[in-house]
Nucleic acid binder design. Structure first.
Lengths: 337, 337
DNA sequence: AGCAACGATTTGAACGATCAAATTTTCGCG
DNA sequence: CGCGAAAATTTGATCGTTCAAATCGTTGCT
């Protein structure tokens, strides 16, 4: 008996009020007199009532859902998990605001835009969180044009794509890494980096270069620019150490750092000398190998993204500035540097 | 001009039919005459119409949503990413069936059950996929009692908790690992394992033990049973090698294998001899270190989970057998063994 | 030709909530 | 005491879809 799902009408009957009053207790409590409110709330908890999101959504056009893409399985396995950890952190933060998180896959930006379209039309998603922003990112352009709320984890690297974002200060990260090595007395510090032209990569490179210059060291010949693979990290390390007498290495990623670390281990096992390496991202691999690395404050970044998103949803169309947050990373010191 | 979102009524008007006919074209095409069907379909694509899920859900009580928990950030960082990769694979498979995936966090099983409750009541989730099943799992009991469709990735290890599941044959994995080492001529093969009593751990141990016995080797003294940490892996390896003259190691996880690997590397760098190690899970760390390891067919497991789920949804209440799938893992051969 | 049976299509109601407007109650104040 | 304004509450309509029942049109068979 009576194990039907309670609706707002059930609750109303129980508390001797109308539907709308129950609705007001939930959505605009100040409109309801204190004693009525309590009576309704009692009815709600006695019946275990929970609003039916679909019915609410049909009227309000808000789903209380945000969406994120999950990284493809094929991606760089060393760094891969970092985005997944970000998804987790976002989910956790979103729940605190009453939002649920929907994940989806996409093969490229165009495909991702198609999915946005579906999610917006069919599911009426409230907002998106994007990761991996890059030059000429079509996704942000599209979303802006559609007037869809979104926040990116990653700066807009394009000319002046203006939107709300959260990012981690990569330059500050490599600066900290480089300065640590300088403090230890190393001078010829090499940088194992990505090809010139990627926003993130250039930013990280700048941190290294600037602090080297500030210390009076000429960076010429001390940097490489290669694809983000273990093999390239290995080759870069070889080049920087053998040919340009680098005494220590700062890397743009843990993947590269792993390659460099292997090269150095090889050298040690052949009786050569060791030298410090610092990676970037604090991946599982870094912790497994004891690599010193620059850690991104993922949890904080996720929380900030969600904070921005909710304020955006509260006052839509606010295109004013100061909705950009740059977070400082920190060094995780381990054996390698 | 008409940039309102098209509804089923818009489409109906355009195709000169009634609402219901459009609905039938979408949900029961066989009921509609071929020429009418085509006319409606044309109208649908001209208008770019997509059904509004919330409205549909309000009527049908189906959301086309499935949910999964995401692993907490604090978890074992070496293995951590494996569950995340599973989430990705599930998402990918689910999309093929028109389902979207919702993720949530939970601190423990009780908390997870609370979330189920909320998701079922408020969002009318269609089904759940569970991971990390264990003895006396309250989640499966609860879900069965509520009659909620679900599939677990992981066998029910309890007495006879009967439900639909997909799992990877851990025993077969360690068997393959052990036999590989036997083939290479090693006899005294040690096992670095988890405490007795966990379903997964015991299963993996059995594979090692059985094949050792089959080869005529007495396993006595050749196994440890410790918590799943790098330090314990290191200690276990020390014990098995120094005290019990193990010539090779099979480990219950990559985490333990990492510890063992380090112990062996230490030994080598002090002039000792090396010996093979095989891990379990094919984590990023294993690939970074060149650890031979047993890889779970995650993608296939995810696809199978989703397959089972959809057939379950098509014929609810089918408690018949043969809805249990055991998948074979495979060895990924690298330098370590 | 007449009628039954079936297939194709349409109509009215309902799902569970919120919005907008209408109604009732409360309260302040001359 | 009576009136108007403000506060509290209720009523009717609606969101976009599917369900169930009704209607219309064909076809087959005697």
């Amino acid at each position: 008996m009576g194990d039907e799902r309670p609706t707002i009408t059930t609750v109303a009957a129980r508390a001797n009020v109308s539907r709308q009053t129950v609705s007001n207790v939930l959505n605009a409590p100040h409109r309801v007199q204190a004693d009525t409110r309590e009576r309704v709330q009692a009815a709600i908890s006695e019946l275990g009532y929970r609003p039916h999101r679909a019915a609410r959504q049909l009227r309000t056009h808000r789903s209380n859902l945000i969406a994120m893409r999950t990284a493809p399985l094929s991606d760089d396995v060393v760094a891969g998990s970092i985005l997944d950890r970000f998804v987790h952190a976002v989910t956790e933060s979103a729940e605190r605001y009453g939002f649920r998180t929907l994940v989806f896959t996409a093969t490229d930006d165009a495909d991702e835009i198609n999915t946005y379209n579906d999610l917006l039309n069919s599911y009426e998603l409230d907002a998106f969180i994007l990761t991996g922003t890059h030059h000429r990112d079509k996704r942000t352009t599209w979303l802006r044009k559609q007037g869809v709320p979104f926040v990116t984890f990653g700066r807009p690297w394009g000319v002046r794509a203006k939107h709300w974002w959260v990012d981690v200060d990569g330059k500050a990260g490599t600066t900290a890494a480089t300065e640590r090595l300088l403090d230890q007395g190393y001078r010829r510090i090499g940088f194992v980096g990505w090809p010139i032209g990627s926003g993130v990569g250039d930013d990280r490179r700048t941190g290294w270069e600037t602090s080297l210059r500030a210390a009076g060291v000429d960076p010429a010949g001390l940097a490489t620019a290669t694809e983000n693979t273990v093999a390239e990290g290995h080759a870069s390390a070889q080049q920087l150490i053998r040919r340009h007498a680098a005494e220590a290495l700062v890397c743009a990623s843990d993947t590269l750092a792993l390659g460099a670390y292997r090269m150095i281990s090889d050298q040690v096992s052949r009786g050569g000398s060791t030298l410090p390496v610092i990676g970037f991202d604090d991946s599982p691999v870094a912790s497994a190998l004891g690599l010193t690395t620059v850690a991104q404050p993922l949890r904080e970044a996720a929380a900030t993204c969600v904070d921005l998103l909710t304020s955006f949803l509260d006052r839509p169309g606010d295109t004013s500035a100061d909705h950009q947050v740059l977070l400082a990373p920190h060094l995780v010191i381990r054996q390698s540097g």
